[in-house]
Design a protein around this nucleic acid. Structure first.
Lengths: 336, 336
DNA sequence: TTGTAAGCGTTATCAG
DNA sequence: CTGATAACGCTTACAA
């Protein structure tokens, strides 16, 4: 008998079923299951035997109700398949574990209704960290009252905690770096599907303009490596004089690198390439990628600290106290 | 007032606190919190106001006890930072979500006591999938009675479910492929720290021997890209006649590719390189990596299906019924 | 060594 | 529209 049947419907067996089957009290079952003292060897064996036969597993809800210790954190990301997120997730899981928290991972790529996913998640966890993105606004109600830290918010965020990503300084350094190396014809390789250049593109363009250089913005037809490579090939034809490419992110930069290599264009000698994100796989490619790196450890630590403080009540649920900024920094490797 | 204080110690507020504060019954609080009908607008507002002030959040344990629907899956991996695991995790999260399960992610890299981590996890989840590794044996007791599917088990596994990874066929294809392309002096670039070659190394060597070629096995001093590159540099000195490298995995292969490029050795013209795993970032490098690819989707699907079957009781907790095999396949790209 | 009673926080049912 | 009561599965405290 694998489980208790009642009216033809299977139902997971409970402590009562085991107690009845073994002919003991519930308390004795608890003692047997949890290796507690004050139970005879024979009774224990009999109980465990019954538990096995009934496929009994203590309900974590019953247990959690009486022992208040287990806390779990929800982590919302776009897509684990994008190398950017695992680096964040890894760090978050690490810091959470340090504090005795578990992490449940939800990605929005696998659902057509991100808001629903978030709604569901709020019922399973005690606090949330993540890239809420577009679902953010719809989720306001759901998230109300729960400790939430949102990462990479462009707009001002007062309803909840936030980690603001700032690459202005690093971008400025990158521009200086390129100029020092003699770059005269830089191009921004953007990726956004919107009609208007992305924030980081505008940042690069204006930093260059400040130094007297005007920067054309070319745009990959879609996200990912393939479109970036394609756009780069086109760029080599349209603007053969290009001597530097600032990419939307590291993935885009990998695409550029690939296209340049296939075209036989030397990097960094003839064209310099810089990415944004600081993915560790930037050291896997040749030449290794120069990049505006984000320290994921720092992001994760700030996010976890903040959200746990909010949970503990030492920090408010919103406002300036729960806003932290993490800055990118220029990591010069081989491609520039 | 942020939460209820009693004897100087903060305690999260409960439905009773809110009911008392709002001067209503618990049931009315439930109705307000869950947008249920049968409550006047004024009462509802008063209750929600009290809830906000008390920072009240319904306990998921209390709720889980009464609504039986929420199931969560534990996923145990080594290290999210290793690109192999996110691809698996992503697929697992996807299939789990399809079935209405949440996934809590635990990595063993962040703890010195993997067995403890697994023990803890068993109390939080309803079923487990993962690379249990060395902790596997110690965890036998803890995992007893719980649906568990272990991935990549070399030894026969009868106590629980398992996904066996088989690369014999693909390895054979890879060997044929190399020979067709004229390879005469292949080398196995192994990585294991043990004194004895890894299983995959022995597989490659014996497949080559079957075709009449003897294969030296060189070993990187440690795991990761750096040691692999270092070993490859040494290899180029010690055995300059080498015309193919079969790497322990894709990461190792990236290291080889990097060293070869720095040494000015043409790939695939002078040396061919093949990895194992089929990481999608294999398409990021130039030349793109030929590899013995594992279909993570297939692995994840088999694992999730099996473990959910075990949970539902339609599959046994161990034995041949819950053993599945997934085969690698040769993906020829540019490096061979 | 074992059992009884109470309570954890929530929701469903039914009565008012 | 609101409230009392019972129940979910488990553990702790105490009694036998």
């Amino acid at each position: 008998m694998a489980e208790v049947r009642q009216g033809g419907v299977a139902r997971p067996s409970t402590i009562n079923d085991v107690a009845a089957a073994a002919g003991v009290s519930r308390q004795t079952v608890t003692r047997a299951m949890n290796n507690m003292p004050g139970i005879s060897v024979e009774t224990k064996e009999r109980v465990l035997q019954a538990a096995r036969e009934l496929r009994y597993r203590p309900s974590r809800f019953g247990r959690g109700l009486v022992k208040q210790e287990h806390r779990t954190l929800g982590l919302v990301i776009d897509d684990l398949t994008n190398p950017y997120y695992p680096e964040l997730a890894s760090a978050v899981v690490g810091f959470a574990a340090d504090n005795g928290w578990n992490v449940v991972l939800a990605d929005t790529i696998h659902t057509s209704h991100p808001a629903e996913l978030i709604a569901d998640l709020t019922h399973q966890v005690d606090a949330v960290i993540g890239y809420l993105g577009l679902a953010s606004e719809q989720a306001d109600v759901l998230l109300a009252g729960m400790p939430v830290v949102e990462i990479d918010v462009s707009k001002e965020q007062t309803q909840r905690g936030s980690i603001v990503l700032d690459f202005a300084t690093a971008m400025s350094e990158a521009v200086d770096h390129l100029l020092e190396r003699g770059v005269r014809q830089p191009v921004m390789l953007d990726v956004t599907s919107a009609t208007r250049p992305s924030f980081r593109a505008r940042l690069f363009v204006s930093a260059m303009e400040l130094r007297g250089l005007s920067v054309p913005v070319v745009r990959a037809e879609g996200i990912g490596l393939g479109p970036a490579a394609e756009a780069t090939r086109k760029l080599l034809v349209d603007r053969p004089e290009t001597d530097a490419i600032m990419a939307f992110n590291d993935i885009t930069a990998f695409g550029a690198l690939q296209a340049l290599r296939q075209a036989g264009v030397a990097v960094p000698d003839r064209v310099k390439v810089i990415g944004i994100d600081g993915l560790s796989i930037g050291t896997f490619v040749s030449p290794q990628l120069t990049t505006l790196a984000l320290d994921m450890t720092q992001v994760a630590q700030a996010a976890v600290e903040t959200v746990l403080g909010m949970y503990a009540g030492t920090l408010p649920l919103g406002g300036p106290m729960v806003r932290r900024t993490v800055s990118h920094r220029l990591v010069i490797r081989e491609s520039s």
